[in-house]
Nucleic acid binder design. Structure first.
Lengths: 338, 338
DNA sequence: ACATGAATTGAAAACGATTTGGCTAGCGAG
DNA sequence: CTCGCTAGCCAAATCGTTTTCAATTCATGT
């Protein structure tokens, strides 16, 4: 059913029908009601592509996805959906190319020029992320989930990674630990730098020098968690506590600790970052895992909301949010053993 | 830069330019080359929305996402991206409403009518899934990832859940286990029924009656894996082996076994289904996990490919694929202890 | 020399909506 | 009675492409 046909059935002009449905003021309430009712009854629905062409709006928000199938991604998108479904805005997944490649830039350029999305949400930027500069230059509204130091205006939402890790580390120090290892995320991303900063500043405030041999970074996988933790613990001067970057890393760490005949919470304290997944909870691990916690789903919802604001013309300069991170203490952390 | 303007720069008509770029045969090779080259140089790119309106193609494939942020979803989409990016086809995420609700149906109807996608991929159907009937009735090309008994033509790709679980169960029986528990997925979905069928048929072929007390179902979470396994093992007649539905369930099962002072692979054998995630591998668990394995990422790639075929007019009746599932034996399975 | 046909190219009509700029009717004020 | 104003509606232009139909050129066979 097309507008013209639908309008004819109603004995109205396309103009009036369009206006009635889009809520313009110059149509009488009584007609509006009739149009709305008949639209449902006859099943008339404006063709999105026509609307998009005419209005220039895409009715969709793009979200950049890494090619590695990161486990937090579905959770973030589920959060986005919560906000975007009622808004009748689509979620378009934009698979990332190799970030160091020129192709990545070309991809964004094409995406913007093709007017497929009204805004873009991107994750895990680097301090000097060229994508941010590009999106700004192209005039595309975009929201950065994470932070960057780059000198162009951009909207962002981030969690307080530095503070979270600082508190986690400080807590371990309070418990008497002095040799504390850290398993960070992929080097280069700002969040990883912030976490390292938090770690270092906590140590520094107690006059402890960070041992480079106790810092490792890599993807958030069970395997790397295991390998790094094992390597740490097999040193001649092993750490008594480990700060890990994700739930998956934590699984590996637990495994490594156990594999050496040690006990988490007794021989080795562990704190990890928990993005709050429905399928794997820190509380349920054995022993239960002390964690810095921040909901990935909530972040998705809020990011979607902020992206909508950008589309509506709010200045990127007004959109900067740092979310606090909870530190939840459970059984995996305990006083240092002597 | 619009077509008209671009064409004028070239001293050609919009018609010819459009044809040159879309690869129609009636334009001379020499002009085509020139057009292609200049398009890059001047940065001309057809406006997607205009193309979509005119051609009626959306250039996007929709994939239905559960609201629970299932952990396999990102992996599946990453697989889709592999096939769809070179094809310049978008991935649209369609958040599911409550499946029992009428809203779910309304959602699909709107989606189809708005012509936002050229095809839809849906997961985990039920045997009588009304969504399939609806999509068929609406004439929208769609691919079911999973299987359904519903009596309308539909394309599908599924793994051999029944065979996988039958083999897993049979292997446990071969090892001497006779009390074997099963932790299944959410009841209702076909894959869960198939798995139960495989489980029962393996038992039946050895003349063993399935004990309803050893069958549990629910979401694939660590927590439910733990709770179910614990409940099984605390019975007066505990099972000596457990078949679990996912990696997360397996984590919970391992935890439950350990929490009772038992040992996986010795006191209790465990087999789980592994969708192959980059962040959590069965091989790395301790003890390493015997698993029925099938790559979720590969499924995503293939599903995308099949969806493209549907769009190109291949009949749904010709698209039915059952993928075999590997059974990988590792340390978590061993002979029954007496 | 002329018709025929193949190879290129263009003009103009869609695609299905939104929106600008009237138009009409009805009402109250002057 | 006329004018001006408002409320409500409509005709037609427009968004940026693709595609139908027709026109032009040029070589070829007769």
């Amino acid at each position: 059913m097309k507008l013209k046909e639908f309008a004819k059935q109603l004995g109205l002009s396309p103009t009036t029908v369009s206006r009635a449905l889009s809520g313009y003021p110059e149509v009488s309430e009584i007609t509006r009601a009739r149009v709305a009712e008949e639209a449902v009854r006859l099943g008339y629905r404006p063709n999105v592509n026509a609307v998009r062409l005419k209005t220039g709006r895409a009715g969709a928000i793009g979200v950049v996805m890494g090619r590695a199938g990161e486990f937090h991604f579905a959770e973030f998108m589920a959060g986005m959906a919560e906000r975007l479904v009622p808004e009748d805005t689509d979620i378009l997944v934009i698979p990332m190319a190799d970030p160091d490649d020129d192709k990545e830039m070309e991809l964004y350029r094409r995406l913007v020029e093709s007017q497929r999305v009204d805004a873009i949400i991107m994750h895990s930027p680097r301090p000097d992320d060229a994508r941010i500069a590009l999106l700004h230059a192209l005039g595309m509204p975009f929201l950065v989930h994470g932070r960057s130091d780059i000198d162009v205006p951009h909207a962002w939402l981030d969690i307080d990674n530095e503070g979270a890790v600082r508190r986690a580390t400080a807590h371990l120090l309070d418990l008497g630990h002095t040799r504390i290892a850290m398993i960070n995320g992929r080097p280069g991303a700002t969040y990883a730098l912030h976490r390292e900063k938090g770690y270092r500043s906590a140590l520094a405030s107690r006059g402890i020098a960070a041992d480079p041999g106790l810092i490792a970074s890599g993807n958030f996988t069970d395997e790397l968690g295991f390998r790094f933790a094992k390597a740490f613990l097999e040193r001649s001067d092993p750490p008594t506590a480990i700060v890990a970057g994700s739930m998956m890393s934590a699984l590996g760490v637990y495994r490594a600790v156990r594999s050496l005949g040690l006990q988490v919470g007794m021989d080795v304290s562990v704190i990890a970052h928990d993005d709050v997944f429905p399928y794997l909870s820190a509380d349920n691990m054995a022993p239960s895992l002390s964690a810095t916690r921040s909901s990935m789903r909530a972040a998705g919802t809020r990011c979607a909301d902020l992206a909508l604001q950008l589309i509506r013309g709010v200045s990127p300069l007004e959109i900067h949010e740092v979310w606090p991170v909870e530190l939840i203490l459970r059984e995996s952390t305990g006083p240092v053993r002597r």
